[in-house]
Design a binder for these strands. Structure first.
Lengths: 121, 121
DNA sequence: TTAATACTGAACCATATGGTTCAGCATCAG
DNA sequence: CTGATGCTGAACCATATGGTTCAGTATTAA
């Protein structure tokens, strides 16, 4: 179960680490779109866009449905809740860590003033 | 400037799309650590861990400092604010889109009840 | 029926990723 | 000085990514 969550975080963060795919999500936030529409919008081949949509689909962020010859893409029901939760938890720990460091830094600068340690790089 | 932001989002999301690297961020949230400590914790070679740290460093999430022969890694000052902001904006659009869809779905199901369209896949 | 449209899959390409081993180099302990 | 420790870089490997072209298939329009 945790394994599963981890893999999903992997897939989703990888999916949104590409500017084109973030753009596709933006676009689908306005309205559904066909592969052709998306390919034109991002100036690439149908095949190329289909791959991007495939990545988004595998991550669960987008769902598609083919009616006749056109495949319509829309935002999936899964959303980005888990990812947002991970980010927030991390940011909280980050903040806590920096609070801690404030104290440590004060101690450090006291020590350094006393017997000045050398540093590389 | 926008170009720059985009590239940074790319790099950061890519950086956190790997479970090992997310683990390293977790670990550094508790305290700073050397490459050796991190490598042992995640059961991989020093060289392998150094690459991961390199990715985190290039994304700005981690900073390192070498004193003597040990390189100490810590959380960088940059944080995940921009990424959280992007995620939140996206989630808001997502929600708005689904509100919209609620209405559309009602209309659609009315139409379909009338002249039942066929679907593939 | 014919032609245009929309997608699909295979194959290819260059580059990146996630890991390894091996051979160093610098530093610290004794 | 010597040896162990900690890191570093180069080279290699398998696989993935982001794109392309080309050759289809299925659907719709005329």
């Amino acid at each position: 179960m945790v394994q599963h969550q981890t893999a999903r975080l992997d897939a989703t963060f990888a999916a949104i680490s590409d500017a084109t795919r973030r753009g596709v999500l933006d676009r689908l936030g306005r309205s559904d779109a066909s592969i052709t529409e998306l390919a034109e919008l991002f100036a690439m081949t149908l095949t190329g866009m289909k791959k991007h949509v495939g990545v988004l689909e595998r991550s669960g962020l987008v769902v598609t449905e083919k009616v006749g010859r056109v495949r319509t893409c829309r935002l999936g029901p899964r959303g980005l809740d888990e990812e947002a939760a991970w980010l927030d938890a991390q940011r909280r720990r980050w903040a806590a860590r920096f609070d801690e460091l404030d104290h440590v830094l004060v101690e450090l600068s006291n020590k350094e003033r006393q017997h000045g340690k050398q540093r590389t790089e």
